[in-house]
Design a binder for these strands. Structure first.
Length: 107
DNA sequence: TGGTTGACGGTGG
DNA sequence: TCCACCGCCAACC
């Protein structure tokens, strides 16, 4: 049972990341919340690392505060991908997180 | 089955 | 604004 729950959580996480539109981003916490585990941001990072599937735009998932996070240490690549999608940066952080951040809570 | 790891979040100094 | 500590959760050995 627990395994099914985790598998479902993982599936929801992948699905949530896949739904992030181009030019937008989401924090690990947001993805975790959408998947049903608001406090599983760390687990989301692990899922991203273990799965790392091409159909999952993991580069659109950033850390809280507009920071990039890990991404294997090559944060430059991740930043370049986001910049290519129109996301503006201010140094190592997003220039406007609240603007590009997706909102799963519809108006 | 149990312990460790790690692409995090929030708070305090 | 930056660094360190603690808490949380899934994957891996």
């Amino acid at each position: 049972m627990s395994r099914s729950v985790r598998a479902d959580f993982t599936a929801r996480v992948l699905s949530a990341v896949r739904r992030i539109p181009r030019g937008r981003v989401a924090t690990y916490g947001d993805v975790a919340a959408i998947a049903g585990r608001p406090r599983a941001a760390r687990a989301v990072g692990n899922i991203m690392r273990t799965c790392a599937r091409p159909d999952v735009p993991c580069h659109r998932v950033v850390a809280a505060g507009g920071r990039l996070g890990g991404y294997g240490g090559s944060e430059t690549v991740k930043r370049a991908l986001l910049v290519a999608e129109g996301v503006q940066f201010r140094g190592k952080r997003l220039a406007d997180l609240k603007t590009v951040r997706i909102r799963h809570r519809a108006c």
